[in-house]
Design a protein around this nucleic acid. Structure first.
Length: 865
RNA sequence: GCCGGCGUAGCCCAAUCUGGCAGAGGCGCUGGUCUUAGAAACCAGUUGAUGAGGGUUCGACUCCCUCCGCCGGCACCA
């Protein structure tokens, strides 16, 4: 063992050895329990960032731990390598997305390998490989055959900057999820997946994930699915012989309806305004509202509407109410039409106030009063008691809701209905760098899948990406022009590519059988490894990725490929690594790198005092990013990993600190020095009966206590930061022990044995956090094989038990004294000792205590009135 | 507006789930040992109305209620 710790040397050595010995490559082994540890595949942006380190080290710590506990651990990795950014970058540089992506993979893989994560690289998958996306196409065809995929003309969200269609999720808030450009609408033929068929299953499945997935992810998915129970009610429009159906969750408030409000895009608008005096104005106004909504952020728009001139009849009371168009009614949700009840719905309230529509009170307040409609200052959407609702007056809102739904069904004017916010998933993209849709359009036969034997449909090379209009693939005749597989006539290939979320739906199934060229995977292999035992990734995937992959799993189950409902047993969303920012008041200097800021917190360029900004997510633009490779160069991967894990709980945001990082490196050096000092001392036997001195007994006790604590912290919750602090504690104990021994001439064999037990336990427990240094020390301690073949240290409860304990003595709940007792002291013993305490006797002043509370091993509380 | 997270020492954070002496670990700072000096290393030291108020309890950082502050997500979903 070298005198000094040289992380670079050690890390290179073990990374090489692990690769050569295929230490982390695994195969199915039914005789051992399996553990599937998965980190989200990396997008091939071209460069590793600190978020990767955080993500991987959490998973790696758990993988190592489970490996040492005897599990057969699969820990694979891969690349999310299709998608728009590569295409945009290629257009910019005039190169090819494939080259850009391959270069990115090569470089990032090198970066990731320097982190020394225990991946089974033999299972590596890149989604842009034809060997992979072939199976996207295979799934696409199977789903088409099952009616799970269909085409429809649909307005798509379109990012004018990237020239790409976006899913609803990607256009959330009316802006592109990547570049924040306001999204516009375009009408295109699109492929859709019927995820709504699985809405209830996706919702119900969430119940089984409670306690295993973060609450907020479950909540976000529930909100996303947005199941809502209510009713459809039909309002006749006698003047044009039509009817309009609204969706409402509060049919019990229908007597308070003062208008029907349609979305500007509602198909009935044109027939309602036909022949009306101001019809043209209404249509123009509707068009204006639609245009405004394109700007996105509907929530920021003021409520605006216009009376169409038409009227509908309330089927419950025969009342004639006006039909309006307004911007706050969404065409995508429900039926695109509502009944406005201003006393029961805040939006309707605001709308009615603005346009002077009449109010009617149709229910009591919570405390049973009836407020006159004109005195209302806000809508009340509570469930109370109905009034002024004809034969349903005086019922509870719930009861009225039920009975009135029943009445509507009876009279055939409506029926109970369930509505979801979730909409079918648009999987078409009109770009180049994605999985080609394996479909052929034939004038004679319609849509015909490419025969399985001809898969994959390979993305053509050398395509001009700078085309105006449509997809770049439209402009490649040799790709587009094909013969129909059915009739042999001339046909046209579908030029859409797939949303990259298709790629990430099932990549972790492929890891189980990554080189299979006959099937997407062998179901038996998947049955062995899946479900994923622990998935670790960013919160940004809470809805899209994690709902699509749950959906895909259920479809695969229905295809007979898998036997479970939920693919991910446990989910952890890691926190971000943040850092403070510096900004110079001079706008030319703006954000500064830390090295541009002087010790006095002034700008090194102009000398002005800088604004020290909040601690926030690292980003290039704010110049607060820390480059992992630079950090590895300074103190090594082990120190970087240790710091990131030590900075805080895995699921919480953490703050980067240069001095903290140095502290991690210093800690490893300290462990190294201690280990080296004891490595050559011959240990004696640690059998019972051997006499031991006080410091030896103490170190043994602390060793076993800390093994116990670290084990529990790893098993019960992934509080890796407290595991590391426990290891530091053990290190401090060993150091104190070492100092004791130094006072003597030489260590006794018994002392050497105690030290060895402690140090070897420390080494093994350090493995999940700093595997390279652990391996190196383990080898130095005479172990011939990798720690991967070793075992997690066990602990002995008897040895962990304290000999003597300190017990707090309280009087009326306030700390007044302390006493020492045997660890096994009974309640009576403790009570007696406490009552004999001077301070207690003084406080008693001759009185008898009213009560004495004894918490064994902790405290005694003597209570006087 | 709704939902969630956080608030403990100069700073990052433990202890909160399961009520029991507020402090494990790290950073910083101060002093010392060593050194020509510094660095490194080691040793010693260093701090508190647990955001506020109320309740339950013998006892509250922990449980309950009402607020405040910061962060994040969702948001006209009828």
């Amino acid at each position: 063992m070298k005198e000094k710790y040289f992380p670079k040397e050690i890390e290179a050595k073990w990374q090489k050895r692990w690769a050569e010995e295929k230490t982390f490559e695994v195969t199915e082994d039914p005789s051992r329990p399996k553990f599937y540890c998965l980190e989200m595949l990396a997008y091939t942006s071209g460069r590793a960032h600190i978020g990767h380190v955080s993500n991987f080290t959490i998973g790696d710590a758990l993988s190592w731990y489970k490996r040492l506990r005897g599990f057969n651990v699969i820990h694979p990795f891969g690349w999310d390598s299709f998608g728009q950014p590569a295409e945009t970058a290629a257009i910019k540089d005039g190169t090819d997305p494939e080259k850009f992506t391959r270069d990115a993979i090569a470089y990032m893989k090198w970066q990731f390998q320097r982190m020394g994560i225990s991946y089974d690289w033999s299972r590596e998958v890149a989604t842009c490989d034809p060997e992979y996306y072939k199976w996207n196409q295979w799934f696409f065809i199977r789903m088409f055959e099952r009616g799970m995929l269909y085409r429809k003309l649909s307005p798509v969200n379109w990012c004018p900057k990237e020239d790409i269609s976006l899913s609803n999720e990607q256009a959330s808030g009316g802006v592109c999820w990547r570049c924040s450009t306001p999204v516009i609408q375009k009408e295109l033929m699109q492929w859709f997946a019927r995820i709504t068929d699985y809405a209830d299953q996706l919702l119900d499945g969430l119940t089984t994930l409670e306690g295993k997935w973060p609450d907020r992810v479950i909540t976000m998915q529930r909100n996303w699915i947005g199941k809502s129970l209510g009713a459809h009610v039909k309002f006749d429009i006698p003047e044009c012989n039509e009817s309009v159906t609204v969706f409402t969750t509060r049919i019990d408030t229908i007597f308070g309806a003062n208008a029907i409000v349609l979305a500007p895009e509602h198909p009935l608008v044109s027939s309602i305004v036909e022949g009306k005096r101001y019809g043209a104005e209404v249509l123009a106004f509707a068009e204006k509202l639609r245009a405004e909504q394109r700007g996105g952020r509907a929530e920021e728009l003021e409520k605006q509407g216009i009376f169409t001139g038409g009227h509908a009849v309330n089927p419950f009371n025969g009342e004639r109410i006006p039909i309006w168009i307004a911007n706050f009614v969404l065409i995508q949700y429900g039926t695109g039409a509502i009944m406005a009840v201003p006393s029961g719905d805040q939006r309707d309230f605001e709308f009615s106030r603005k346009y002077g529509l009449p109010f009617r009170q149709i229910k009591l307040t919570d405390d049973g009063r009836e407020i006159p409609a004109e005195e209302l200052d806000a809508a009340d959407d509570g469930w109370t008691t109905t009034v002024n609702t004809g034969e349903w007056s005086g019922l509870s809102s719930e009861e009225a809701n039920r009975r009135m739904t029943g009445y509507a069904e009876e009279k055939e004017i409506g029926k109970g209905a369930i509505t979801y916010k979730l909409r079918d998933w648009g999987v078409s993209r009109q770009r180049y760098w994605g999985t080609p849709v394996p479909m052929i359009h034939c004038g004679e036969c319609g849509i015909v899948p490419v025969p399985d034997a001809q898969l994959p449909v390979v993305l053509p090379k050398g395509v001009n990406l700078r085309v105006e209009g449509g997809s770049p693939l439209d402009h490649v005749p040799e790709y587009v022009n094909v013969t129909c597989p059915k009739c042999g006539g001339p046909a046209r290939r579908d030029t859409d590519t797939m949303d990259t979320f298709v790629d990430s739906n099932w990549y972790y199934f492929r890891y189980c059988d990554p080189h299979n060229d006959e099937r997407p995977f062998d179901p038996e292999k998947v049955a062995y490894w899946l479900p994923v035992d622990q998935y670790i990734g960013g919160i940004e995937h809470a809805v899209m990725h994690l709902i699509y992959t749950r959906y895909w799993t259920k479809v695969m189950r229905d295809m007979g490929l898998v036997k479970f409902d939920e693919p991910v047993s446990r989910l952890l969303t890691q926190g971000m690594i943040c850092k403070e920012t510096y900004q110079c008041p001079n706008p030319d200097h703006d954000w500064l790198f830390p090295e541009q800021v002087t010790a006095e917190k002034t700008c090194s360029l102009c000398g002005r005092p800088v604004n020290v900004g909040r601690v926030e997510k690292m980003s290039k633009s704010r110049k607060n990013a820390v480059d992992p490779i630079e950090m590895i160069e300074i103190h090594g991967a082990d120190a970087l990993r240790l710091f990131v894990l030590f900075a805080g709980p895995p699921d919480k945001d953490k703050e980067w600190s240069d001095t903290g990082f140095e502290g991690a490196a210093r800690y490893l050096q300290r462990v190294w020095r201690l280990a080296r000092k004891w490595v050559d001392r011959k240990p004696g036997q640690l059998e019972t009966g051997v006499e031991m001195n006080v410091h030896s007994r103490k170190l043994r006790r602390r060793t076993h206590q800390i093994i116990k604590r670290v084990t529990e912290n790893l098993e019960e919750r992934l509080h890796l930061n407290t595991c590391i602090s426990s290891l530091m504690e053990l290190t401090n104990e060993i150091q104190a022990f070492d100092a004791e021994v130094d006072k003597q001439q030489a260590a006794t064999p018994a002392e050497a044995a105690v030290a060895r037990e402690a140090i070897e336990a420390l080494i093994r427990m350090l493995t999940p956090f700093a595997p390279h240094i652990a391996e190196e020390m383990w080898e130095a301690y005479g172990h011939g094989s990798s720690l991967a073949q070793s075992q997690w240290p066990g602990f002995n409860e008897d040895l962990a038990r304290e000999e003597e304990i300190e017990v707090a003595v309280q009087v009326n709940g306030k700390l007044r004294s302390r006493l020492f007792a045997r660890a096994e002291a009974t309640e009576d013993e403790l009570r007696e000792k406490a009552l004999a305490d001077d301070k207690v006797i003084a406080a008693a002043a001759g009185r008898e205590p009213n009560k004495v509370i004894v918490v064994p091993r902790k405290l005694v509380n003597v209570v006087f009135k």
